[in-house]
Amino acid sequence: MSAQIVEERELLEIEDLEIAAKGIVDGFLSGLNKSTHIGQNAEFISHRDYVHGDNIRHINWNLWARTDQLFVKEFETDFNHCVYISVDSSNSMNCANAFISKWQFACKAAAALSYLAIKRNDAPALIIENDSKQSFIEPAISYEQFYRILGELSAAEPGGAKPINSLIQKLPYNCRNRGIVFVISDFFDNEDETIRNAANLVSMGHEVIFVQIFDPWEAELTEEGFYRFHDLETFSTRSSDVSAIVKQYRDVFNKWHEGFTQKCSNKGIDLISLKTTDSLADVLSDYLDKRGT
C-alpha cells in the first residue's frame, strides 16, 4: 500500500494499528525523497597509529603495504536509541468530535513512531498508565517488539482521570537509558507541574517531545448553536450559546497554548500540537531530527 495513493486521513481511519502505522511511516519516508535503504551502521572517519591491543581486523593493510606502517581505521559507530513512547490514557482522550478520537489518534501516533524506530534500528518502548492499568514494555530492537507494542495499544482503553503528571513523574524510573521520550497527551492538567517533571527527564539527557493532541472542538469550538458541554474527566457540564462565546473561547485557549509552548521551550522540551484532523508527519520528522538522521 503506497502512501502516494492513500491519504493519511484514510490511514488514520483504519482500525488495524499495524497497517495504519506502516502506511503512515512508509508514506512519510517516501515523502522525505531519500533512499529507504538502511546500510552499514559504521562510517569511516580517520586513521590512527596501531597500538597494542587493537583488533588486527581494523588494520588498513593497503596503507601498510604503501607506507610500511600500521594504521588502524576509525569508524563512527551507530548508536541504538531508545525511543520511549508514553501515552496518556485518561478519560479525556476519549473526546471524539472529529472522525477519530484523541485516543485513537494517539495510538496511531505511538504505533507509527514504534515502527519508524524499529526501521531505524532504535529500540522503542511503551508506557501506558491509567487508573486501572499500568504497563511498560522495555525497549528492544525487533519486529516482535513492534507487535508487542501494537498488542498493548490495542488492549488498552482510556479511562479514569489520572493526570499526565503522575505518568511523567514515573518516567525517569522507566527510561533508564538515554533516549527520546515521547509523551502523547492533551496536557490539560497542571502544566507547570507537568513541565517541571519533564524537565527532570531533560536533565537526565533525554530528548523530551510532547505530542499534544486536541480534538478540533477543544481548540476552536464550533461556530454556533446551543450546546451543553460535558467534561469527560470531571463530568461537569456547561451550557451556552456557542456563537456568543466562540471568539472569547478561542482567545482563552490560544493564550493558554502559547503559554504552554513558551514554558516547554524554556525547559528544552519540544512541543508538537496536533488536532486529530492533522497529519502525523510532524511527529515523525521531529523524531528523525532528534535522532540526527
Binding site: K102, D186, F188, H230, D231, T234, S239, S240, V252
Partner: peptide
Amino acid sequence: QKFINANLGTNRFLIEVLRTRNRWR
C-alpha cells in the same frame, strides 16, 4: 431548552469564558 450535548476533554476554558460571559448573558 434547545441544547445539544457534546463532549470536551476539559471544560476549563469554557468555565473561564462563561465565568464572565454567562453572568452578563
